[in-house]
Each structure stands twice: as structure tokens, then as C-alpha cells.
Simulated scan of single mutants.
Amino acid sequence: MHDDDFDLFRQEMKGVKRIKTKERVEPPKPAVPEPALIHRRQMAVQVRQGDDNHLTEEIIDLVHPLDILEYRTDGVSHGVFRKLKRGQYPIDARLDLHRKSMAEARAEVFGFVADCLKYDVRSAMILHGKGERGEPKAFLKSCVNTWLKQMPEVLAFHSAQKHHGGVGALYVLLRKSESKKAENRERFMKGRTE
């Protein structure tokens, strides 16, 4: 830098004072952990032996209480899914999860789907509630949304029509049981030989 440039710089900077910086303050962490964190810690401590239930106990992505839930596997046609969405399949079984803890609901969903397959139920309903008053909001609804996607027996689901519970319930389409598959094969083969 030339002396002229330096003198010019000093003239321009005349009267400028260095800014005093304060030490950075970290915001205090909440004294009470969030319910999701508490649950995750409890689940990490628990070790279950002999539990065939493969549904996750981890915290899942939360959905909004008024969200419409929908899911379908690749094998489900648009027509079948549309019929499910409209509530046009007979509801052969219902599961009500209101006022259940996460652990109770997890066990009941797993057992309910197993029973549906055992008794050849193809379409069912799960009432999980909206969860508008819970903390975190829509927690059970979020759990059911996650669990059903983890079950290969579930082909599709959609939030129910208003008269069946709306966004607080789900229509669930289940795959055929092995006995129904065998029955259909026999019927198909019999029709081909005649």
C-alpha cells in the first residue's frame, strides 16, 4: 500500500471505534425433555425377549391431526384403491385404539392384522383418533401410519370417509390368506379344465 493510500484510509476511518463484542450466550436447554425423547429413552432401555412383533418402537415422523393418510403397494390397482378410499368395501373387522399407550397400540395393531389374515378378513378399519389434544399431537395416528407400511400383509390404507370417522380412522386392505389363495387357484384351475 502506498503512503498516500494509507493516509487516505486513515482519514476516512477517523472517529470510527472498534465494536465491542459480548461473549456468546448459549440458550438454556429445556429442563424437561420432550415426550418423544422420553419415549425413545425408555424404548432404548427395554429389551424384549420372544417378541415376534417387528413393528418399530422408534419415534416416527409425526403427521398433522387433520392429515389424510394414504398408502398403496405396487400390486394394488387404481380402481381397487379408489374403491377403498371411498369406503366401498365391507368393513369386516374394526380395531379401536382410543386411549391406548404406544406399546398397547403397537401390540394390538400387530395382533389385529394377524387375526384378520387368520380369519380371511380382506378389508378392515382402524380407529386411531386425530390426536388433536395429545402431546405430541397426532402421535398414535403417526405410529399407525408408520406401522402399517411396515407390514407386508397390508396392501393399502386410506383415511376413512367422514361417516366412518374421517381422518381419525383408516380403511385397511389386507392381502389374501394362504387358504384363500389356494382356494382361488383351485377355482381358476377348475374353470380352465371345464
Score class of each variant (00 low, 15 high):
F188R: 15
K190P: 00
T146W: 12
R41W: 08
F157A: 02
G131F: 01
R185E: 13
D96L: 03
Q11H: 06
R192W: 13
K162C: 07
F139R: 08
Y171P: 03
F188K: 14
K176D: 14
P90S: 05
V45P: 04
L84Q: 00
V167A: 05
P90I: 01
I19Q: 08
R133P: 00
K141D: 02
K20F: 04
H78S: 12
D96Y: 04
Y71P: 09
R133S: 10
K118S: 05
E58L: 04
E70D: 13
K118R: 08
H98I: 02
R133D: 06
P33A: 08
M189H: 12
T146N: 11
L8N: 09
G79N: 14
E104Y: 03
D74P: 00
T193Q: 11
T193D: 11
K100S: 10
D3N: 14
E57I: 06
E58T: 06
T56L: 02
V47G: 05
T73S: 06
V121Y: 06
R72V: 02
R175C: 00
F110E: 05
N184M: 15
E108F: 06
F81H: 03
C116N: 01
P30A: 00
D96H: 04
I60Y: 13
E58R: 13
V76E: 03
Q42N: 14
S179Q: 08
D67Q: 07
K85L: 09
R86V: 02
R86D: 10
F139N: 03
D61N: 13
H128M: 10
R175E: 00
P27I: 02
E12H: 10
R133A: 08
L127C: 06
K176I: 11
L95T: 03
G168K: 03
R82F: 05
R187N: 14
D52N: 10
Y119G: 01
D61S: 12
Y89S: 02
D61F: 09
D52F: 05
R185V: 12
K17A: 04
L127R: 07
P27F: 04
G191I: 09
E57M: 09
A107G: 04
Q150H: 02
V76K: 01
E186V: 06
H54N: 12
Y89A: 02
R18N: 08
E23R: 12
G131R: 02
A160L: 00
R10H: 12
V154P: 00
Q161M: 15
E194N: 12
L84H: 00
